[in-house]
Each structure stands twice: as C-alpha cells, then as structure tokens.
C-alpha cells in the first residue's frame, strides 16, 4: 500500500503515536503552564487499560475508550491532589506520580508485575490500517489543539500560564481550568498509550518510566512550549531518531537532556520561537532593503 515498506509503516505509526503523546502534554504544560515530569504514567495507564480490556475479550474500540476514560479520571484525581501545589513543587509531585505508577505496576501480579503484559491483541486493522488510524487520531489531535488555542479556554490558559494570582483577580476559576487541562491532557495520553500497546503488543513497567516522561517533555520544550506545529515537528523527529540510529537510543537521556537544557538556555520559545525570530529577522531585512532601495531613486 502506497509503496511503503513494513519498516516505514512502523516508523510512521510510532511517529504518529509520539505526536499524540507530545500534544497531550502540550495541553497541560504548553497551554496551561503546568509542568509535569510524570506524564508517561498516564501513557502507561492507557496502555495497560487497553491491553487488559482487549485481553479480556473486549473489542479494540472499547479498549481505546477505556484507556481514555481511566487515564482521564486518574488524571483528574491527581490534578485535584496537586491543585494546592505550585510550580517547582508540581514538578516534584508529578515526578512522584511517575515513580509511584512504576512501583505499583511492578508489584501488581494481575497486570504481570515486572514481566509486563504480552500477546496484546492487535487492532485487527492490519499494519497500514492501524497506521491510518493513528494518523487520523493525530490529525484530530492537531485540529483540537489549534481550536483550543484560539478559543476562550486557550485565552484563559494563557493568563493562568503567565500569572495564576492575577488570573484569579480577573475572575478566572484557576482550579477548574487547571483540572480541565489535566483531564484533557491525561485522557489524550491514555489514548496514545493504548495505541502504543496495540502497536508493539508487549508492555512492561519500564516502557513508561522517567526516561519516557523526560523524552516527551523534551519534545514539548524543544518544539516550543504551547506551539502546536513546533511540538508536532519535534515529536516526529525525536521519536524516530533513536529508531533510525541505534547509537542515539543508547544516549537518549543524555541527548534529550542536553537539547532540553540548550533550548531553555538559548531559545526558551523552542524551535517555534527560533523560526519566528528568523522570520522576523528576514522580514526586517527585506523592509530595510526596500527602504534603502527607495532612497536610491
């Protein structure tokens, strides 16, 4: 189909899943300004939920739906618990949630403990059918993100991301908005996780650890916090690099950590910010040329 090899199909599928996962964190961290260092836990919750449901004989669609609901509900619960926690403490809290998830999954025999879950049923759509499904969800996620950014919800998120206290003084129910961000972001991470589970057909606790949380955060920061296309680009590239180049896989944490640091230090707006700066630079040079051209005549 489309002349794509099986390898290419699996690369595109992984890319699509990474894009959905990164955009899910972008809703929380990018749009609403709430840092999370444990987002992989919700990816994992989605993966485990759908894996267990489909292994118990439920249809694939029910697995996906279950993943979205369970991840979203746990997300809201964690959100409520961290409402009183601010900024740097939120980083620690969410990191704790990530480790807690791994700890529980390792010990929980029902879900295979350290051995994980294998022989997860496929989607039944075939390899390329599944790829199109992932891409379809990816496109919907992009469209939803773009809509959200333009909506009054996105507007309120901007205010909250900049200054919570002032957001309250202008009448925003900051807690409700944060919970909405958590609910949407974690539910979407659950969807991405479920897609991952049915793609690789085997999951274990280590698939959803701290490294994964940092990886997805790198995608958001490198792409440009809050920028939809920047994050899509960064997620697409950073997700396949380690698959293409074995060497990178081994030094993943080092590479992503380094990129994360470099971006924070030199271009806090990420790639999207960098592109904007370059465009502004070019257009100002163009207008300068126009000006000087005008004076010559």
């Amino acid at each position: 189909m489309l002349g794509l090899s099986g390898y290419e199909i699996s690369l595109i599928t992984s890319m699509g899943i990474a894009v959905i996962f990164a955009l899910s964190l972008n809703l929380i961290t990018g749009f609403c300004g709430q840092i999370s260092l444990g987002h992989a836990a919700f990816y994992g919750i989605g993966a485990y939920t759908s894996a267990m449901l489909t292994k118990a004989g439920m249809p694939f669609g029910v697995g996906l739906l279950g993943a979205v609901i369970v991840a979203g509900l746990i997300g809201i619960f964690i959100g409520i618990a961290s409402l009183r926690v601010r900024h740097d403490f939120l980083a620690i809290t969410t990191m704790g949630v990530g480790f807690l998830f791994i700890g529980i999954m390792r010990q929980w025999d029902l879900v295979g403990g350290e051995m994980g879950v294998s022989s997860i049923p496929g989607s039944g759509l075939g390899k390329s059918g599944f790829m199109f499904l992932v891409l379809g969800f990816g496109v919907l996620t992009v469209l939803f993100s773009l809509h959200l950014k333009r909506s009054w919800m996105g507007y309120a998120f901007d205010a909250i991301a900049d200054d919570e206290d002032t957001a309250r003084v202008v009448g925003l129910n900051v807690s409700h908005y944060k919970l909405a961000a958590f609910a949407m972001g974690t539910a979407l991470a659950g969807l991405a996780g479920a897609l991952y589970a049915h793609n690789v057909r085997f999951i274990d606790p280590e698939s959803f650890g701290f490294v994964e949380s940092i990886t997805v955060l790198s995608m958001v920061v490198i792409g440009g916090i809050g920028s939809v296309f920047g994050v899509v680009f960064a997620a697409a590239v950073l997700s396949v690099l380690p698959l293409w180049i074995q060497f990178i896989d081994e030094y993943k944490l080092l590479l992503y950590g380094g990129l994360l640091f470099a971006m924070m230090r030199f271009s806090p707006g990420g790639l999207a910010g960098l592109v904007k700066q370059i465009l502004r630079h070019i257009s100002s040079r163009k207008s300068l040329q126009k000006l000087s051209g005008g004076t010559k005549i």
């Binding site: 809509h147 959200l148 333009r150 909506s151 009054w152 919800m153 507007y155 309120a156 205010a159 202008v170 009448g171 925003l172 129910n173 409700h176 908005y177 919970l179 909405a180």
Partner: peptide, 21 residues
Amino acid sequence: TLTAGSRHTRSPLGALFKVDR
C-alpha cells in the same frame, strides 16, 4: 479583551466552545 469577554470564561467547558473575540 480577556476581561471584556469575562462572560465567556465563567467555566472552562463553555470557554472551549467560544472563539470569536
């Protein structure tokens, strides 16, 4: 503009469905 449109931002869900500024 954000506060001029405060009637749109009363609840997050309502705000999600409004775009025009």
